[in-house]
Write a protein that binds this DNA or RNA. Structure first.
Lengths: 211, 211
DNA sequence: GTCTATATCAAGATAGAC
DNA sequence: GTCTATCTTGATATAGAC
């Protein structure tokens, strides 16, 4: 019970830290700001996270774990066959714009906090990506295709979190369709359930063929 | 003359700032560190850039301008036809691994410095990307394809600068081939120079990348 | 244009009361 | 476990000599 309460407090403190980054940017991710956001004193905050490094580390670990759970669930929901993980990413990573934005905001705050605080803190994220790319790179699609799709999704993420390119629902749909067309042609099996999203399986132009 | 000298000094100071970020990370991008790296005093540095914001602003503007020049040149070197800008990005953005790395390092230092210092300083980068995506989104390829390719390249850039996924020459080649196959099929015109070459010896000069 | 010296301040972290 | 008060450091920026 005590443990559960403590865990809940930690979680709310991490929420506060994310909120600070999202609203004020990483330059303003200070212990004072997090404490104020959480409605606690700096001393109280430092009781749960004895240093700023530990706080950021916890932010990254939580985000990494969420990400891992998220794509594993998507994998389970996706039909078997070549490119299963890749198709799972397409259906979950580019689903609804609003959900996507929320996830983006949260993950970006952790990643950038780590980058600013101490780049080595990104490590948990590396482990998740390591597993993800292992799965995506070896699932029967033509060489490099799974990796290309994953990279494209993360490119969109980058555009969105930096505001480099306006990413709206229309753009997401355009890009998803283009990527799905590639994957579908590379792995034409099981066209019945290619994607869990109804309007995502509309492929007009025939794709290319490869070895 | 005086102006040219001043401009050269400014450029060398920006080089020093990039070097600091690359070697020590953005957390250590301080005026002291930049001054030391450039072999000048902090007072001298502040004569050229009256505040840290101005210094980072100049870093971003220089990087953005390099990027713009870079892809415009690549465009000129690329054969006419559908997807010209997209093909230009593929040939120049994913050319030689070493050149690419160098460009990555430099561009990432500017972008992340801006992110840490003051996100609004990214603006010059936005303008360049705005133009780039305008060109890539409307060149006769199937809908979303140009944007997907551009996003994939920037995804690779992200992997590389954060070390999220190991990006080596082999991976670059794999992804490039997958993307080229898409573009080639969508725009089969001018097969002579499109990049039917397995190793894409299309245009390899001045490799390098974006953002 | 470059330097040294210094003012100013904010942030991370500690100590100890409650 | 949470608080207030305080210590310490390091970073930006200014002032003014050379």
């Amino acid at each position: 019970m005590t443990r559960k309460d403590t865990s809940e407090v930690r979680d709310s403190l991490l929420d506060a830290a994310e909120a600070v980054v999202i609203r004020q940017g990483i330059a303003n991710l200070t212990l004072d700001a997090v404490a104020a956001e959480a409605g606690i004193s700096k001393g109280g905050l430092l009781h749960h996270f004895p240093s700023k490094d530990r706080l950021v580390e916890a932010m990254v670990m939580r985000t990494a774990e969420h990400l891992r759970v998220h794509y594993r669930e998507a994998y389970e929901r996706t039909s078997e066959g070549p490119g299963r993980m890749t198709r799972a990413l397409l259906s979950t990573g580019l689903a609804d714009c609003n959900c996507w934005s929320e996830q983006c905001r949260r993950s970006s705050s952790a990643v950038f906090a780590a980058l600013a605080q101490n780049p080595s803190l990104i490590e948990p994220m590396r482990e998740v990506y390591s597993e993800l790319h292992r799965r995506v790179a070896d699932e029967g699609l033509s060489t490099g295709l799974g990796e290309a799709v994953a990279a494209a999704l993360d490119g969109l993420w980058l555009y969105w979190v930096l505001g480099l390119v306006p990413v709206d629902q229309e753009m997401i749909v355009r890009v998803r369709k283009a990527l799905e067309a590639m994957v579908e042609h590379s792995a034409p099996a099981k066209p019945a359930r290619l994607s869990s999203n109804p309007n995502a399986s509309d492929v007009k132009r025939s794709g290319g063929r490869r070895s």
